[in-house]
Simulated assay, not measured.
Amino acid sequence: MGRAGKALKCVLQQYGISQNRLAVTMGVARSTVNQWVNEVSDPLADSIPDIVTALDTLEPSAAQIFLQLYIQRRCTPTQ
């Protein structure tokens, strides 16, 4: 558990995006995003595209980095 959560936590921190801002953009409860970020639960597979779309709306490069981290399973700063 936690592959998506770790990637999401890293991206939110790196780009200064709050859990609440992502939740509002996605149309989900902030507690849902909090559970993902804190690895209490993983987002369902069909939520991953929604996360990417929301991140792309907020910060396009964050969406790209999220996907890279999600696939690579590690959190490393970029640039």
Rank of each mutant, 00 (worst) to 15 (best):
V52T: 09
A23K: 03
L55G: 02
Y15E: 08
R21T: 13
T32E: 04
K9A: 15
Q19A: 10
Y15T: 06
N34S: 15
K6M: 12
T25K: 13
V33R: 01
G16T: 08
A54P: 01
A4F: 08
C10S: 15
Q64C: 05
I51V: 09
S41Y: 11
V24D: 03
E39A: 11
T25H: 02
L58H: 01
I17T: 06
Q64F: 10
T57S: 07
C10V: 03
A7G: 10
S47G: 00
I48N: 03
D46E: 14
D46P: 00
D46R: 11
V33G: 02
T25D: 02
T25M: 11
P77Y: 10
D42S: 13
L67I: 12
W36N: 03
S61R: 15
A7H: 10
F66D: 06
V37A: 05
Q35K: 13
Q35F: 09
K9Y: 08
R74H: 13
V33W: 02
R21S: 12
E59D: 12
I65A: 09
L8F: 08
S47Q: 15
L44C: 02
A45N: 09
G2W: 08
N20F: 09
D56R: 12
R74Q: 14
W36D: 03
R74E: 15
I17V: 10
K9D: 12
V52G: 02
T78S: 11
I65L: 15
E59N: 11
T78W: 07
E59Q: 13
V52S: 05
A62Y: 01
R3E: 14
